[in-house]
Lab assay of single mutants.
Amino acid sequence: MSIQHFRVALIPFFAAFCLPVFAHPETLVKVKDAEDQLGARVGYIELDLNSGKILESFRPEERFPMMSTFKVLLCGAVLSRVDAGQEQLGRRIHYSQNDLVEYSPVTEKHLTDGMTVRELCSAAITMSDNTAANLLLTTIGGPKELTAFLHNMGDHVTRLDRWEPELNEAIPNDERDTTMPAAMATTLRKLLTGELLTLASRQQLIDWMEADKVAGPLLRSALPAGWFIADKSGAGERGSRGIIAALGPDGKPSRIVVIYTTGSQATMDERNRQIAEIGASLIKHW
């Protein structure tokens, strides 16, 4: 067993022997301040990774656009098919120029040779490549099948209805392509620590998230040296922004954090800054 596999296998073990965790309302004060600064709703939840206990939450059962955070769930569904012998990570998928959609920095470079399922998941999570996500959605049967996968996990809230990039439209009061912070946090925890996926697939999923290259201005910008984070960000229309993450000190994750916002007129930089400040408060009061 590799060191990384050992780390993920012992996530519940280490967490069980940690000192009790206590909620700190100071972080919620910052979440509410972010709402004021952005002029928009902000949803927040913080779960203990081992027990699933909610440590703090704000608007945990209000719907927010998922945006690209759905790509972690998508690759979880792909990995479940791999575990069941219905898919192979090494299978190569070929596609054409007509398949390319807006923001496809990886797939646009491989029109000639195609990409493997493993490479597509890596591109979808680490670079948020939209064509990679659409190609992977095709392998599982489309958005409705991802929703069905989530329902089978016990998540009857999260739903995907459309493809990239239309799913980022974020129309107010439109339930399409949305989740709730509580539902997303619980589902992410199941994917990373539950028995739904094999140990190898859980490790692969967290490795992809740990290698995320496009979430630097968010929670990662607030992390002290030595902290662990595996995350996936999302951005959408109407001032929408979000991030889902597993993080913790001492090089291992111990909490799940989900943050979503929508309806702001603020710039992307300002949305990023507010999420980073929430992260800084979380870490300060850990």
Rank of each mutant, 00 (worst) to 15 (best):
A225I: 13
P60Y: 09
N168T: 07
S201I: 03
I140H: 04
G76Q: 01
S240D: 05
V78S: 03
L79M: 11
T126R: 07
N50H: 12
S254G: 13
G279D: 00
I171T: 14
T116E: 11
D129C: 01
T107N: 03
A148Q: 14
L74P: 01
W286R: 02
S2K: 11
L247W: 07
T69C: 05
L160P: 04
S51Y: 08
H94T: 14
G141I: 05
L89E: 06
L192H: 04
C121D: 00
Y260N: 01
P249D: 07
D48W: 03
H156Y: 14
L218C: 05
C75T: 10
G248W: 02
N152F: 11
L38I: 10
I244V: 13
E46N: 10
R63I: 08
F6G: 06
T179S: 09
P105A: 06
D174T: 05
S128I: 00
R59E: 03
K32L: 11
M67F: 04
T198D: 10
T267P: 14
F17N: 08
A276K: 12
G251S: 11
P25M: 10
R41M: 11
L19N: 15
F17P: 05
Q274T: 15
A148E: 14
G39T: 09
W163M: 13
K32A: 14
H156N: 14
R118C: 13
T147P: 03
I11K: 05
L282E: 04
G90S: 13
S2P: 09
I45R: 03
W208K: 01
G76S: 11
A133F: 02
L188V: 12
E62H: 08
Q265T: 14
D212A: 04
V117I: 13
S68G: 00
K252C: 12
R189N: 11
S104H: 06
S122M: 15
H151K: 15
R241Q: 04
I11W: 12
R241H: 04
A230L: 05
P172V: 12
L219P: 04
T262D: 07
G142W: 01
A40P: 03
F6W: 08
G141A: 06
A15D: 02
G52P: 04
M268R: 07
F13C: 10
A230C: 14
P253F: 09
G234P: 00
N272L: 02
V101W: 06
F6L: 10
S96Y: 11
R59M: 04
E237M: 15
A185T: 03
I125N: 03
G263R: 07
G154F: 04
D207T: 13
Y44L: 11
I140F: 06
A280E: 15
A77L: 11
A200H: 15
V157E: 12
V8G: 08
N134L: 02
H24P: 06
V117T: 07
A132P: 00
E169N: 11
P249F: 05
D113V: 09
H5M: 15
D177Y: 01
D231M: 04
D212V: 04
H94W: 13
T187N: 11
T158E: 00
K284D: 14
T138S: 14
M153T: 12
A200Q: 15
R118H: 15
P25R: 08
S221T: 13
L192R: 01
P249Q: 09
A9C: 11
G194D: 13
D231A: 06
K190Y: 12
G39Y: 10
N152D: 15
R81D: 05
L223Y: 03
S201Q: 06
P224T: 06
D129P: 00
A132L: 00
G251R: 10
L167C: 11
A15H: 08
I54D: 06
C75A: 10
G216W: 08
I54N: 06
G239Q: 03
M67C: 14
F149Y: 10
L223N: 03
G85L: 08
E102V: 11
A266F: 08
D250S: 14
Q97E: 15
Q203N: 13
H156E: 12
E108R: 11
W286T: 01
D155A: 01
T139W: 06
P12Q: 10
H156D: 14
T267G: 13
P165G: 06
T178L: 02
M153V: 11
A123C: 08
E210M: 10
M66L: 12
L47I: 15
G236K: 01
H5C: 09
P20K: 14
S201E: 02
R241C: 04
P253I: 10
T261K: 03
L89Y: 07
M67T: 11
N272W: 01
P65M: 02
I45M: 13
G216Q: 13
S104R: 03
V117N: 04
T147V: 11
D155Y: 01
S80M: 12
V82I: 11
L223K: 07
K32T: 09
I11T: 07
C75K: 00
H5N: 10
E108D: 11
A211I: 06
T131A: 10
D212L: 02
Y103L: 04
I3R: 08
D48K: 04
I206W: 13
D207Y: 14
G226A: 09
F149M: 11
V214A: 08
A77F: 10
A230D: 00
G85K: 10
N98E: 15
W208E: 03
I3V: 07
G234T: 00
R63K: 10
S51I: 04
Y44G: 02
L196S: 15
G114H: 05
R220S: 04
V42W: 09
L137W: 04
L100E: 04
D83W: 02
T116W: 02
G90T: 13
T261Y: 06
S221G: 10
M67H: 07
Q203R: 14
Q88G: 10
D212F: 02
W227G: 02
T179R: 00
Q97P: 14
S233H: 01
A23Y: 04
F70Q: 05
G114E: 04
N50F: 12
T186Y: 13
L19T: 15
V82W: 07
I140V: 09
L196R: 15
V258I: 10
A185P: 00
T116M: 06
V106P: 01
D33C: 15
D48C: 07
A148W: 09
L19C: 15
L188E: 01
P60M: 13
M1S: 01
T116K: 06
E119K: 06
R59H: 09
F228A: 09
P249S: 08
L49M: 15
L192W: 08
K32E: 10
P143H: 08
K190E: 15
L146M: 13
I171E: 15
K252R: 13
T179D: 00
L196M: 13
D177H: 01
S96L: 13
L150A: 09
G194N: 10
H285G: 09
S122L: 15
V101L: 08
G43R: 00
F22A: 10
A211D: 15
R92F: 10
F17S: 08
L100R: 05
E108K: 11
P165T: 10
A23W: 03
C75H: 00
R238F: 14
D99E: 14
T262A: 08
T158A: 05
I93E: 05
A266L: 14
T107Y: 01
G234D: 00
A245Q: 01
M66P: 01
M268G: 07
I229A: 05
P143N: 04
D129E: 01
E270G: 08
A183R: 09
S221L: 10
L150Y: 08
P217R: 09
K109M: 15
Y44W: 03
D36W: 15
S221P: 09
Y95L: 08
L167V: 13
F228Q: 06
P12I: 14
E102C: 07
A9R: 09
L38W: 06
P60C: 12
A245N: 01
T186H: 14
D36P: 05
P181G: 04
R63H: 08
V117C: 04
T179Y: 00
G279F: 05
H5F: 06
S122K: 13
